[in-house]
Design a binder for these strands. Structure first.
Lengths: 209, 209
DNA sequence: TAGCAACAGGCAGTTGACTGCCACTTGCAT
DNA sequence: ATGCAAGTGGCAGTCAACTGCCTGTTGCTA
């Protein structure tokens, strides 16, 4: 039995959930971030009630869909990066992969954002790997030593947010990645102010986001 | 007569619009970013129909409310900054003022974001001043020479987006401002990739945001 | 100061996110 | 293979954003 909050789904249910997420990504890509949940359910071949049973609201659905996309494109890159000799290049390759995915699926990203999801959470599943890669780069003296693990998801969230200010298909975000990397270099560094915890208060109210 | 798209409002109408914006800021602050437009209209003492006549949707309303807040807190700071001897300190004071406002009125910011508004636009009215301050800092050799005017609103949008990843009341964003300022320094700079235009395509669809 | 264009706002209606109810189906443990 | 917990999905309903219509009011101009 599953003691955890994360219950095991029956195989058909898990398959449906997977299908809904994939459907969401496709429909968002096709019809924009305002696409209706009805359409997503229909495209997935399930009833709307099933969609809502699995994903309590649009924010959760869109964020989960984004996570699915990120997983698919980042998992192999992370694996490769962990083997890389050059830790800075390794870190870079992960950021690059995440940004490419975010740009490619910017409609899903927009849906998540508009529904009020906290985008940096979508990096959650790769937090540990990202931390490890960061630490390696620090130990190699390639990036400043006063970075903490929480910095990476935030930096990626900042980069994601750039996509609204430009044609998402362009790689204009590279300019700002470059800027930030200059800031990450061990050379220029004025000491950083302390870090505050990642989203300590789930926001007044009761959002299941 | 007003030939422009920006027609002059009758004095009573202008007063109402002003009131609606102030009401929006108050109600968002009080009831959170999901506050209903009904409540905002009521709190402003106007009918809901009047609210919608002036602001076609929640995104426009929230962005306008945010702009009102930014104007109030930034206008005097800009004026002061333009007189400042130290151009980097001057630029900093403006960023500081904007971030303080954004943190203080994070519910209005959240409402704008959730409704799909492009936050960097809210800096629009101060684009020129910001450009001037930036250029001065460049000429004084205090920040890298390859920055362009479009960079500033984007950097501010990035900083704004940090507020979702932390307690908005904290000043945790300063850490990342510090990071970015290190990246802006003329010292470390690897040359930046080219800049792409700010939001060239108003996004497929027809959002009046 | 008269008269019109601009404005106000109630009311009823549409749409899309989301919920409760409930009868029907189906993995899967025994 | 069989029984039941888990999963499905139609239907009707709520709630909030938004619109059209239409009557009554008011700033402003001649």
């Amino acid at each position: 039995m599953a003691t955890n909050s994360e219950r095991l789904l029956r195989t058909d249910a898990a398959r449906n959930a997977e299908r809904i997420l994939r459907s969401a990504r496709e429909v968002f890509a096709e019809s924009g971030p305002d696409a209706q949940l009805d359409e997503i359910a229909q495209h997935a071949g399930v009833g709307i009630r099933t969609l809502f049973r699995r994903f309590p609201n649009k924010a959760v659905l869109a964020k989960a869909a984004l996570e699915q996309g990120i997983s698919e494109c980042i998992a192999p890159v992370i694996e490769q990066a962990l083997l890389d000799d050059d830790p800075l290049l390794a870190l870079n390759s992960v950021i690059d992969a995440a940004m490419s995915l975010a740009a490619r699926e910017h409609n899903t990203l927009a849906a998540a954002r508009n529904a009020g999801a906290v985008i940096s959470d979508a990096i959650g599943p790769y937090y540990a790997s990202l931390t490890l890669l960061t630490r390696r780069a620090q130990e190699a003296g390639r990036i400043r030593a006063d970075l903490v693990p929480d910095d990476m998801p935030r930096i990626m969230a900042m980069l994601f947010s750039l996509l609204w200010t430009m044609d998402p298909a362009s790689d204009g975000w590279r300019r700002y990645l470059s800027l930030i990397l200059d800031g990450l270099s061990p050379a220029a560094a004025t000491p950083l102010p302390e870090s505050v915890p990642l989203r300590p208060s789930p926001r007044p109210g009761n959002w299941p986001i």
